[in-house]
Nucleic acid binder design. Sequence first.
RNA 1: GGAGGUGUCGCCUAGCCCGGUUUAUGGCGCCCGCCUGCUAAGCGGGUUGAGGGUUUGAACCCUCUCGCGGGUUCAAAUCCCGCCACCUCCGCCA
Length: 424
Amino acid sequence: MIDLRVLRDDPDRVRAAQKRRGESEGVVDALLAADELRRLSIGDFERLRGEQKQLGKQVATASPQDRPRLLAHTQELAARVKAAEAVQADAAAGFARLAATLPNLASEQAPAGGEDNFEVLEELGQRRDFAAEGFEPRDHLELGRLLGAIDVERGAKVSGSRFYYLTGIGALLELALVQMAMERATELGFTPMIPPALVKPRAMEGTGFLGQAADDVYYLPKDDLYLVGTSEVALAAFHTDEILDTESLPRRYAAFSPCYRREAGSYGKDTRGIFRVHWFDKVEMFSYTTLDDSYVEHERLLGWEKEWLNALELPFRVIDVAAGDLGLSAVRKYDCEAWFPSQGTYREVSSASNCTQFQARRLDIRMRGDRGTEPVATLNGTLMASTRTIVALLENHQRSDGSVRVPPALRPYLQGRELLEPTR
RNA sequence: GGAGGUGUCGCCUAGCCCGGUUUAUGGCGCCCGCCUGCUAAGCGGGUUGAGGGUUUGAACCCUCUCGCGGGUUCAAAUCCCGCCACCUCCGCCA
């Protein structure tokens, strides 16, 4: 939810932000009208309720003779109070429903437009010239088969398409990456966490995943629980309904958890291998800061993501995601896209978002500031998404014989292995 | 899953049986002030959060807030129903 003062005092700013996202500006007027209605109905209710309370006091102290006369009057008043309360509740609910659909105000620095209007900020690392090296690079699935690391056939047999088994060195590789990522995050001052992957509607709603992204979310109707698509959900909801000491900020958490995504609407896209799957594991960074600090924190998260990809010696670029592709909660988002030789293109492997106070307002996470309580800011960033990281490692560090070089930084987590070698 | 118990404004706690001057009691902690050579003690005051209004850096008034949601009633922390969380026991299970 955005700051309602902005909506009231500067609706044009909200309209402009909607426009940059390519979304409806009409919702702004609808919201203003709903807010007006809501405030009027609150006034009505409070006036009647105040009257009722006054009379109630008189009844309590009235003599037995006077009492019947007073009661005759209050009975009818009680009915009106009840009606006014219902009107007020409806107005509040109507406003809340509408407000929930309004995305966060896209940053003015975020490029306007949709998915394709991103801006490339920088390119890092060294792309290999396989032609010069004299061999055709294999794709990750072929490499995964040679190494005995990935089994998608049995994944599909057991769970359906877009499921997989990591086997042998593949399983060890993921564990190594997870361990390395968690250690690095801890060294950076993050509190390591293992959060629940099933959450209640409040957490999902509060983080903004039940908006336009709702189709992508797994839901368990029997239990009214959602499977998270990222541990951002459980980490954001961790402090729900809390007031944090301002001195305790920034609070940084790094979580290892599975991520589940229905991938609705991506039929036929990235169908080969484990590039796009319904489940993967991830180490996620999450920060709670003040609003003012959130902008630098965003840069810090990006910086740590870059260090991570550099440590794995992956070539990648950083993009500034366009406003229309931000998702409901973020004002600005940086994606790190690794180079995938088999696809001849850069694809997302990590992402850092500044959600400012949007999620905190929905989840009621506040801090005690000089001006009383105010919402904190929340940010999230991928440190290590297992499947795409594995794909990038295999493809970028492969050798002509199908073996894969292990970057030195990762070797301590793989019993010192320098090379992953074909098992067949 | 079954039985019982508990849930009060940071923490602890009174109030609930028997509904109404409750503006929710007291203690601890914290903040401000007084006192004091300094500290401690003592004394006085303040200390949940949200929303609305008049005005606006302040302040003031009002409404809501006793786990959550309903109901009864002129009136609910208090009575009734449902839900949630925690504790104890039983069953099941990793």
